[in-house]
Design a protein around this nucleic acid. Sequence first.
DNA 1: GCTATGGATAGCCTAGCATCCCAATGCTA
Length: 584
Amino acid sequence: MMTNKELANIFKEISFFLEIEEVPFKPYAYRRAAMALEGLSESVESIYQQGGSRSIQDVPGIGKHIAQKIEEYLETGAIKYYQDLKKKHPFQIRELTAVEGLGPKMAETLYKKLNIKSLVDLEKKARQHKIADLPYFGQQTEKNILEGIAFLKKSQQRFLLAEVLPVVRLIQKQLLSLKEVKKIAIAGSIRRMKETIGDVDFLVVSENPEKTMNAFCSLFDIIKVWAKGPTKASVRLKQGFDVDLRVVPKQSYGAALQYFTGSKEHNIHLRKIAITKGYKLNEYGLFKKSKIIAGQKEKEIYQALDMFFPPPEIREDRGEIEAALRQYKKEKNGLPRLIELKDIRGDLHNHSTWNGGKNTIKEMAFEAKNIGYHYIGISDHTKFLRIENGLDEKKLSQQAKEIDKLNKEFKKSKDNFIILHGCEANILKDGSLDIKDNALKQLDYVIAGVHSQLNMDKEAMTERIIRAMKNPYVHIISHPTGRLLKQRNPYPLDIDKIIRVARETKTVLEINASPVRLDLNDINIKKAIENKVKLSINSDAHQKNQLSYIQYGVAQARRGWAGEKDIINTLSVKALLKLIKSKK
DNA sequence: GCTATGGATAGCCTAGCATCCCAATGCTA
């Protein structure tokens, strides 16, 4: 898969170079090819090995000439066309254009006039105030470049959904309290509940735009106002991310919401459909010639395009548009009915004071009961994780006694609530577990996960997890790919194979709802569901207030097209235990 | 350079904002 990424980067660079040379339409083609490669679930190398250059052309967005270039790269390790372009423009184009406000043409000018080749050069020349003196640049541009570099270095540009969402909800509340504000919505990737957020988009209908803009730009926590016009303002908060506010006319509110919710890919596809039907779609509405057909409500736009309304979480152009069209025509394979937070009846992956959690089993249970759950699963780490005070066979049976006692109290008070006893066993390097099957047998269910020795090659890691799935006492694999957002990439893993074996062995895969994990991710969730693998959304709470993380897991599940029936912890206790016991 | 339509050719998503110099361009979403 590394090759896919390398090639995607090369094609992105070619696209920039061609943009500098003002070649028409080719940049678009190369950019699309790059995107196609990035979204490909198979390695282009193995496609080529199996079917040659011809089969690479089957990938949408890749035609004869780009396929030839891929072939050249796979055979020789280089692409001459790219190298020639690179010689003509010998600077780090991707690095430089990553600076906000700096595009390919400016990068070219900076190289020609000041011999700037890299981010380091750029920062140096900007600090020496060489950039401000260039024609068409100026002091403001220089300042923006320096700030862009600083931001790039500091923040890696994206923020966790869970970092952003609470702040954004607060701002929304404040803006809504202004009496001239008639409507307000959060659009963008937040509305789609993406795991990480670039920046935040607010849309507002206001009777006094100027007043609203002033109020917005004087919100607390603002450290910088980037832009402030009559319809758009853009600010940076001290938390590090940017928030845009757009004032839109009432009759365009739905169109603007649709447009700014994205994703970009979804919108491009939608606009193409509009065109084929003789319309034009933009953020002001859906138009036939100059006559507005729809715009006030988002739903009306989809309706006018003969589509059902796709939930924001799945607007990634991964088939939702086709599904929405089919549903409108009352054909099968329409839009999925997505899982909702209220469908969740319990949480199966939680830790207690027994191994380093902050709350006792009882406290965790009462929190879960207050949320309205029917059950909570306690799944503390087993012995390998010394640092987490992992439980051995003996401690597990002591823990069982405590849980029994609590359950008796629940029964006596006629609470419709039960604590299930599980554990999170460690999958050791060879795929065996760090605790005996005899101990696992006593539990209601078993979660197993990889927590150590993550630097294995793909094949070995895949086999390691497969061996654990083949253990008849293992019911759920926790955080299957091991990624930590903004900190650690997933370990190399043949996820397709994992999914296949999960189905064969009736093993459940986890959607870990912890904001830094969200593992499985949306794409893998969709794949698992398509292969009829069951999933479990768990908070992995180490203290009682973390049970609320479940909302992020549900969001990720929705992004992966999951419905109630795909998720095991939507079941009643009875049905859940029956399903668990069906694995032999 | 790709895709779709029809077999060689047409069309590729769009608008506002900032910046620079005071009409045009590049960038971003």
